[in-house]
């Protein structure tokens, strides 16, 4: 039996254990809520974790493309980027999966070819972890961009309302023509 068959047989238990490990990165009351509340609008974070867990395992077992997994990973990282995590903690859930797979497969590694197959899966998880890191940074940058935008919008509006700014208005074809002519003269 190859690695994929073994993983397919353990799919449900791996998904559950991985979900629980991610949920355990939250405070106690929160982790039980994340696990027990199944309704998607009442528990959007738990739902996002569940979707990512299911999709990543599915992609690894069925050798799907990473793109499918990346969409869900991006969603999960987007959530963790605004939660109370240090950067390493925010993206460490894929390293949890590596450890989990090692624990689950330790008795199978001696079977011919399983360990080599595992190494291939492990590097795919590493690639996903790198992708998650990029997403994390993207969303952290977005947070700072939003802060700056709010500030700039307010300041600009006030200047405009106080008649302290003057903006050229696009006055239609004639205006554009005159600009073109001016540029031609140059």
């Amino acid at each position: 039996m190859g690695l994929i068959d073994i993983l397919s047989g353990k799919k449900e238990i791996i998904e559950k254990k991985w979900f629980d490990m991610i949920a355990a990165s939250y405070p106690v009351n929160a982790s039980s809520f994340l696990k027990n509340q199944k309704e998607q609008f009442a528990n959007p974070v738990g739902n996002t974790i569940g979707e990512a867990v299911h999709t990543v395992i599915d992609v690894l077992i069925h050798e799907g493309t990473n793109e499918k997994a990346n969409t869900c990973l991006d969603k999960l990282v987007k959530v963790r980027a605004v939660q109370d995590f240090a950067p390493s903690m925010a993206v460490d859930f894929l390293y949890m999966l590596k450890q989990l797979l090692k624990d689950e497969l330790k008795n199978e590694f001696h079977t011919g070819g399983v360990y080599e197959e595992f190494l291939l899966i492990e590097s795919r998880i590493d690639t996903m972890a790198l992708f998650s890191f990029e997403s994390y940074l993207k969303y952290k940058e977005k947070i700072y961009e939003l802060k700056v935008n709010e500030f700039k919008n307010m300041a600009f509006r006030l200047l405009e309302r106080a008649n302290l700014t003057f903006e050229f208005k696009d006055e239609g074809p004639a205006f554009e023509k005159s600009v073109l002519e001016r540029d031609t003269v140059k």
């Binding site: 939250y26 405070p27 009351n29 929160a30 528990n43 109370d84």
Partner: peptide, 17 residues
Amino acid sequence: CADKCHFFIGGGDPKNM
């Protein structure tokens, strides 16, 4: 009320229950 606060749902801090 415990799991009805948007800050608890979105962030997971128990003191936001």
